[in-house]
Simulated assay, not measured.
Amino acid sequence: MTEHHHGAGTVLPQAVTVVLALLSLAALHHLAVRRAVRRNPAQDWPVWRTISFATGLTLVAVALVPPAPTGFPAHMAQHMLIGMYAPPALVLAAPVTLALRALPPAGARRITAVLHSPPVRCAVHPVSALLLSTGSLAVLYFTPLYNTAMSHPAGHWLMAAHFLLSGCLFAHAIAGPDPAPGRPGVPARLTCLGVAIAAHALIAQALYGGFFTDV
């Protein structure tokens, strides 16, 4: 397995950028909660959803704020935090529902229209989310893509963004509390979840044994 090293001079600026971005998201969430409650005082926003959002941001910070991983085991630990642990916490915070409550009617209608658009309905289908989240792992680790991405400064951040976004998409498609027009029933979602678990197990075994891998 190839180890990749990134310049030490870029670590601090990158860490500061990540912290500022996460703090901005936390502040935006806080403002959205206040506005949602102000718009409808009779319907309070659950505290546990705010805690869930903060937990997700914290997990992302734990994964991204330290120096970039210099070996494959460190990369996989980061991948687990960003792609598997943080997404459920962020999704359970119901950010779309919060936005619908916080925005004025015109803005809420625009979000609803986007949710009902064919591209979004396709993207949030469990099969599409499965291919983007789990299927992409096979492409990443069983082709030269991983080493190619890690050899460029932006590759590490692009992979982290993909892990986080695809993980959130899959968590939303399977069990997200936000509106998901066209999402299939529970049996279909559980089937996709089972396929994802099996695929992750196979990929993990292949990586551990060094079979068909290029990392």
Results as ranks from 00 to 15, higher is better:
120 V>D: 00
34 R>M: 14
153 P>C: 07
212 F>C: 05
108 A>Q: 02
190 L>K: 14
6 H>G: 02
39 R>I: 01
10 T>H: 10
108 A>H: 00
126 P>I: 06
19 V>F: 07
143 T>P: 03
87 P>V: 02
213 T>K: 03
5 H>L: 13
74 A>R: 04
2 T>R: 14
143 T>W: 03
163 F>D: 06
93 A>S: 15
50 T>Y: 05
152 H>E: 11
202 L>D: 05
56 G>D: 09
188 A>F: 08
184 P>Q: 13
192 C>P: 04
145 L>W: 14
32 A>T: 05
90 L>I: 10
58 T>F: 15
67 P>V: 03
5 H>W: 11
30 H>Q: 13
106 A>N: 00
67 P>M: 01
133 S>V: 03
6 H>M: 01
99 A>N: 04
91 V>D: 00
184 P>Y: 12
122 C>K: 07
34 R>T: 09
38 R>Y: 03
186 V>Q: 10
61 A>P: 09
151 S>I: 06
8 A>T: 04
199 A>G: 08
118 P>I: 09
62 V>S: 06
84 M>W: 14
215 V>A: 08
95 P>G: 11
132 L>W: 11
155 G>V: 05
94 A>Y: 01
18 V>W: 12
34 R>S: 13
72 F>R: 06
3 E>G: 15
194 G>L: 13
155 G>W: 05
24 S>G: 14
194 G>C: 12
147 N>Q: 14
46 P>L: 06
165 L>S: 11
157 W>T: 10
160 A>W: 02
67 P>H: 01
24 S>H: 09
211 F>V: 10
136 S>W: 10
31 L>S: 08
24 S>R: 11
37 V>N: 04
111 I>G: 01
32 A>N: 03
127 V>T: 12
160 A>D: 13
33 V>S: 02
114 V>Q: 07
127 V>G: 02
129 A>R: 05
157 W>L: 12
172 H>S: 09
53 F>S: 09
170 F>G: 08
110 R>T: 15
97 T>Q: 04
93 A>H: 02
36 A>P: 01
65 V>T: 14
130 L>C: 09
192 C>E: 08
124 V>H: 12
215 V>P: 00
178 D>K: 08
33 V>G: 01
168 C>P: 06
185 G>D: 12
197 I>M: 14
109 R>E: 04
23 L>F: 11
177 P>D: 00
15 A>R: 15
49 R>A: 00
83 G>I: 07
141 Y>F: 15
4 H>C: 09
53 F>Y: 15
59 L>I: 12
208 Y>E: 11
22 L>K: 13
13 P>T: 10
139 V>I: 09
169 L>V: 02
203 I>W: 00
73 P>I: 00
52 S>N: 06
23 L>I: 05
155 G>H: 06
31 L>T: 07
208 Y>T: 14
42 A>Q: 13
169 L>P: 01
145 L>F: 12
174 I>R: 01
204 A>F: 13
135 G>E: 10
156 H>Q: 07
28 L>Q: 11
209 G>W: 12
151 S>G: 15
206 A>L: 12
